[in-house]
């Protein structure tokens, strides 16, 4: 996997270097002082990552060892027997495997489709508000929910959706539904609960980067457009959106690579035995059956699988973006 990226980036390096500094590669100019400074600056990250990211990677060995049941991971790594791919196979053979994969991908694709664009629209339309004071108010107030933990925030919805005392009973009373709708218990609703609540809680916070991007668009562009007789929607379509397009692409790629990650705290609040068939995802699965049972090897193996797929998603997401817009993260 690593090799693949390296070769991929290597070949890309050539093309980009050609555009950046034509002919540079052939002549091989000697390094200037500034080259050294730049390499030195970038090397800071290498030193940091070597210690805090690469050094702990030896823990991945555990995925290929029969280390379940050991209390001390260091011992498990050094003493336990090799078991090749047994841990991975055990996961593939789990009766819930396909459900978990379906849920992880389904839920995340939905989030990408809905929860990714909406904060952008929110930022764009907030910028359209006429009163500056109102704008400031909106941009502050919509952050509030970010600071309330899911346990508490979700608790509000748990009481709101309670069958006997919450919304379902009211809807029935008003004659809008024939029987009480079991929002929390019906597996079919679970994904939508997650989508809806994460929108409510995260839209304001998620839009902050776009708010910053929009704030930086020079006002002259709008004034010029106005002179040309552009209306509001023209301005959004031809100035605002194109101006923040690079930001959008950047975060789109980053989101694609996070396609297998779910906020565990969020899911566990709404997960219950009735909706488990649609609510169990990779992260909740590892959380429940990994560390508490000392199944370190098993958990590491699943985590490693996740990492590989995520990396693949990042690389392909970046590739697609480059094909379409000619730009990518690297």
């Amino acid at each position: 996997m690593v090799d693949e990226i390296l070769t991929r980036t290597e070949s890309e390096a050539e093309t980009s270097d050609n555009t950046a500094q034509k002919g540079d590669r052939k002549i091989r100019k000697p390094w200037t002082g500034n080259d050294w400074v730049l390499v030195g600056m970038a090397s800071l990250s290498v030193i940091f990552l070597a210690v805090f990211a690469y050094a702990p990677l030896y823990g991945l060995i555990l995925a290929f060892k029969d280390g379940d049941g050991w209390l001390n991971i260091s011992q498990a790594i050094s003493v336990a027997d090799w078991c090749e791919f047994d841990n991975f196979i055990a996961f593939f053979e789990d009766p819930d495997f396909w459900d978990i994969i379906l849920n992880t991908l389904g839920l995340n694709l939905l989030q990408l489709l809905i929860n990714f664009p909406l904060p952008i629209l929110f930022a764009v339309f907030t910028a359209e508000l006429m009163s500056d004071q109102y704008k400031k108010f909106v941009q502050t107030v919509t952050f509030f929910p970010h600071f309330i933990s899911w346990a508490v925030y979700g608790g509000i919805f748990l009481s709101l959706f309670a069958l006997d005392t919450g919304l379902p009973a009211l809807l029935q009373q008003w004659g809008l539904t024939d029987s009480k709708v079991d929002i929390l218990g019906d597996p079919d609703y679970f994904w939508w609960i997650i989508i809806g609540t994460s929108l409510l809680k995260g839209m304001g916070w998620g839009s902050v980067i776009y708010v910053a991007a929009i704030a930086a668009i020079p006002q002259e562009l709008y004034e010029a457009a106005k002179m040309d007789g552009a209306n509001r929607f023209h301005k959004i379509a031809y100035i605002t959106i194109p101006s923040i397009a690079p930001t959008i692409t950047l975060f789109f790629i980053l989101s694609v690579s996070g396609l297998l990650n779910n906020g565990i705290e969020h899911l566990l609040v709404f997960q219950n035995t009735s909706n488990i068939e649609r609510s169990e995802v990779l992260d909740t699965y590892i959380y429940k059956y990994g560390i508490p049972d000392f199944r370190y090897s098993y958990a590491t193996a699943i985590g490693l699988l996740k990492s590989i797929v995520s990396l693949f998603l990042l690389v392909s997401g970046n590739w697609v973006c480059k094909k379409i817009s000619g730009k990518g993260i690297y």
Binding site: G155, A162, L163, D164, T165, L184, G185, S274, N275
Partner: peptide
Amino acid sequence: SRDNFTQT
């Protein structure tokens, strides 16, 4: 009550 099945 069916509420029972999802109560915390």
